[in-house]
Design a protein around this nucleic acid. Structure first.
Lengths: 319, 319
DNA sequence: CTGTTAGCGCATTCAC
DNA sequence: GTGAATGCGCTAACAG
């Protein structure tokens, strides 16, 4: 029995002949190791839990690929849990994952509240945040600098001569994709000496329809902005279509830029200018960090910030 | 100890007072039940494995939502495993899930080969196919009638007067989204007495870029078709853009219809006509079926076919 | 190199 | 209604 265990776990202390015989028996009997029993005995499940805020969001799907590739590379299995963008569900899922004795936890995106912190604190296994951060150095995290990304996007608009720039924001309660990008927008304006105008920002919900709604609002303004910065690609595409539906040409009549560089940014006419988040890398790097943590290796504390890059395509023109 | 177990498992044979005391102790000690040990002892994990062929495909994301909602309703957890559209990985993932002692398995989309069947056969827990089927009654499955869906789409084109209709197909090796839709296309032509022309079908890979490539091909034909049927929305959108990039107007110069009705179909100009697959329902129904199977309830054998519906939007016009 | 032993943390008998 | 005993299938330490 112990020998079988050794064979199954690739322990070298088995005579090749015996190993062969065991494999044959395994084959013959159709034996399949029971991962649950193994997990109980070894106190390791070689499984990491990944909570993903919204499975239907293409951004997270790409991050998940990065996570997975690295996880496979280090022979970890992944339990992906969708949290439907609901906080209670996020908390519940975290607890379920911990009960299932995952060896580590990756928390993707979303807003990390005190309740989350509370749940994380009860964990005896390492946790890393992925595509989000939290104030202080409470938890290791890998993300981009959302504020700077937004600022760079708006700066491009300004460099092209735009002075009246609207913003389609995410909810300001969301510290990363929402508030940080809003702040980046304000900073860019400030730096260029352009007064901030509350009327030029419209809060959406990240989705296509709210991009449409926002653009309709801008079109109705007596002083319509010449350029729009959108917090996400999807809203930007909605904005483009609303502008076109209103008889405008993009970018001749109005320029549009956003943040994400999701696949969709190249699936629209005109092609969308946007600032690229290295989504795959965010996933890969955070998973690599988690493997180190699970392996009790020493790692530098604190957040890892990955570089973004503004991608110029067709939706922005000189004013 | 047994009493704690009873409390945690909601066994009624506990005095309310004792129950309360146990809960207090649980709270005070921060006790968290170990799902692994529980699984070993009870031989149930209240977990179902879901293998999803491609996490970055919006279609599957929507199906997954349906799966999840029902799973939660019946108090099952879900392990989502992405298989990256690679057969070996699918097989590997199935085995991993089985080793982890899931109570049931949902296999989503993808091509079910003999190797799959072989892997499924070793399972002692129920398995249902979701968004795919297999010949014979080997496995319970829920899906739409892909062939009929394609046929209906093409029929709409024909009803609008089109006689020269191109098709952007998926790979014909794929029995569902590929071959079945191709057959539906041929059937519709046949029924209308339109001769089938090999030159008017172009095989793509379901992605946007291959839609572009296919449309470029059609645009280069001396006898350019007046309408295109695409096997997926994403390729259809590529086709629309390629047509527009080539100076054509959709639908005035060329009509386009596809199958899927993904969210993207409403995120393009003109709005894409397409036949809707009830994706959420496919997920929900298959999960419900699985719960019955896991519960050893009697269910009707065989496949469940859900209804599709052709959605007329803007991308199709009379010839 | 191989077999024996003792848990892993729980659910499930069975007594009381 | 509660506690004590047994074992789920495996790994880990130990002895040989």
């Amino acid at each position: 029995m112990a020998t079988v265990s050794r064979v199954v776990n690739n322990n070298p202390n088995v005579k090749p002949q015996t190993r062969k015989k065991v494999f044959e028996a395994i084959e013959r009997l159709g034996y399949r190791p029971n991962a649950v029993a193994r997990g109980l005995a070894s106190k390791k499940t070689t499984t990491v839990g990944v909570v993903i805020p919204d499975i239907s969001n293409a951004i997270f799907a790409e991050v998940a690929r990065g996570v997975e590739d690295i996880a496979n590379m280090y022979h970890y299995n992944i339990i992906l849990c969708n949290a439907d963008k609901r906080k209670e569900k996020e908390i519940r899922v975290i607890n379920t994952l911990l009960e299932k004795q995952v060896d580590g936890l990756l928390f993707m995106g979303g807003n990390v509240t005190d309740e989350h912190i509370q749940a994380f604190k009860t964990s005896s296994v390492p946790i890393v945040l992925c595509g989000t951060t939290v104030d202080g150095d409470l938890l290791p995290a890998v993300d981009i600098d959302h504020e700077k990304a937004a600022q760079d996007a708006v700066k491009l608009l300004i460099d092209k001569g735009h002075r009246s720039i609207g913003m389609i924001s995410g909810t300001l309660q969301d510290p990363n994709n929402g508030f940080a990008r809003y702040n980046g927008y304000k900073k860019a304006l400030e730096e260029a000496g352009i007064p901030f105008n509350e009327e030029l920002v419209r809060v959406g919900n990240y989705r296509y329809e709210s991009g449409i709604e926002a653009m309709r609002y801008f079109l109705g303004l007596e002083a319509r902005p010449t350029a729009i910065f959108s917090a996400t690609d999807e809203m930007a595409i909605g904005a483009i279509h609303a502008a076109q539906d209103g008889g405008l040409h993009v970018p001749e009549d109005i320029s549009i830029i956003s943040v994400d560089n999701s696949r969709m940014a190249s699936m629209v006419r005109p092609l969308l200018s946007t600032v690229a988040q290295p989504m795959y890398d965010i996933g890969a790097v955070s998973m690599r960090l988690l493997t180190k943590l699970m392996n009790k290796e020493n790692v530098d504390k604190g957040k890892i910030t990955l570089m973004h890059e503004v991608i110029q395509r067709q939706s922005v023109a000189e004013v």
